[in-house]
Design a protein around this nucleic acid. Sequence first.
RNA 1: GGUCCUGUAGCUCAGCUGGAUAGAGCAACGGCCUUCUAAGCCGUAGGUCCCAGGUUCGAAUCCUGGCAGGAUCACCA
Length: 597
Amino acid sequence: MNIEARIVSKVQKALLELYDTDMASEKIQVQRTRKDFTGDFTVVVFPFLGFTKRPPEQTGEEIGQFLKEKVDEISDFNVIKGFLNLIIGNDFWLRFLNSMHQRGHIYDFALESGQGKIVVEYSSPNTNKPLHLGHIRNNLLGFSISRILEATGHEVKKVNLVNDRGIHICKSMLAWQKWGQGETPESKGVKGDHLVGDYYVLFDQEYKRQVAELTEKGYTREEAEKEAPLMKEARQMLHRWEQDDAQTVELWKKMNGWVLEGFEQTYQALGIDFDRVYYESQVYKLGKEQVQKGLEAGAFFTGKDGSVWADMADEALDQKLLLRSDGTSVYITQDIGTAIQRYQEFDFDQHIYVVGNEQKYHFQVLKILLGKLGYEWAENLHHLAYGMVELPEGKMKSREGTVVDADDLIDEMLQTAETMTRESGKVGDFSDAEKNRIYHSIGLGALKYFILKVDPKKNMTFDPKESVDFNGNTGPFIQYSYARINSLIQKAGERNISVPEQVKASTPINDKEIQLIKLIHQFPSFIQDAASEMNPAVIANFVYELAREFNQFYHEYSVLSAEDEQLVQLRMVLSIQVSRVIREAMWLLGIDLPERM
RNA sequence: GGUCCUGUAGCUCAGCUGGAUAGAGCAACGGCCUUCUAAGCCGUAGGUCCCAGGUUCGAAUCCUGGCAGGAUCACCA
């Protein structure tokens, strides 16, 4: 049990003994004492006044007195207005630090194993164009939240559902067939996903031209869009694909292969991976059967033209199409099928879908439909709906060419990292391989941190200028803090300063040191919060605060040349523990740390 | 029009299930490297927490109603 929980239970006891009142522990507020007051934890006494029948100051005094006598860790207290500030004795913090020092992972004690199995679906790209900034947010969130859930004792399965079929892929295929002249990623020297994306753009340009031509001839816009020869051809191609036409399938396999290879490179650069990859081409039919079953069971109904619908009037929603009149399935039908498949495969306790917030309605409906089919686990599906990434000049629009390409962005980050590092002149003696590793850590660290530090559900503005800034609340700031501690530890070794197994109980600790130990102490509860809110930003903000706090300490006090031996040992142990927490917090975010920078 | 999300310093964001004088970074200005990495540290300046009511001992936080921005309500995915 952590110290806060202990205080709550002791306050509860105090209320019972002093005022004969049994108060629920959730109603007792214990919080960190604000920096401008003395104390470590604060009990808010206002809620107790109803039954203590005493003014706030007196109530605080009485409870404070009780706690000081009955709780060893509490060495003193003070009362200001209705706030009872408790002071925890140094020996408690020292004991805590020592216990930390002997542990493996720090987040171990956030970890209660056997918390259940969770499937996290993320990334889910279409195979007709390369990844962009929006996908990066998705990938980073999915990957980080998976690690956070693992740290809280869940068994996590990371899955990707690649949308490798449909009309959009046919568009690229058609354009390549018409104008590609056998071009390949190798022959052209570009990544496969970019090559295919280029043909998608080509299709769109030509298609627009045809539509314009037709509207000039007197077609309405809608007619023109439908009748444009290119679109007709694309639809025919999709039809052929669905008929398993050998030539079409071969072309599809070839171009999908190019794209997937390109994606793989991007994933690798981002440092993310999956336990299982699904392809829509293989699972898109799964839902039909389920819908048929539901139809037979009376959960759904048939329209006049043979299409199948669900009525969601009970949920105050409209009707939803599940199968088209020609019997083919729509998007939601597929998701019904894959959800059931995954439940059978993994027997999950929860399933998280990391998908943009524009699909909120979709997932709301998905849960309802699975409920109608009688699956109680439908309520264990969660949609982690993240906001869109906007640019300072507004939304990213592929049509206007304002999308930020993932690979370009990564390159730019690496370039900047290299330039900045060169200018600092700190890695002169490194091998090229080492230097590249460092540029990669820093460049990607900056990008990842920039994106993960904001609350997922909010839309965020991505300012390229700001993202490339390595000062302030950034990934490199934290990496730098870490590298400095690391160097400290190296130096200690060179100077034959040994790190003790235990810090001596009598060692005096100053406020800054206590502040740092307190932060470390809170790490597990931040992990819990991040997990329950599905929000990596909680971790990001925490580790930033820790790094900032440490930098202040580092600036103000000397570790290796502290006044006496005991202090050197305390500060060494403290520094090591801080670096461990930074490392583990950054690991939860999926951000690498260079040992030197 | 219905539903959902967001609105905090010039800009980008924190602010936990209501708690003390609302916090960081960037940008601006001024300091600190003969001392463990200055990608750092310190200071100055900057606020009608969108508006109006309500609940409460207490509201940036909860409720209601506005306003502004965004998303969504396809036989698209």
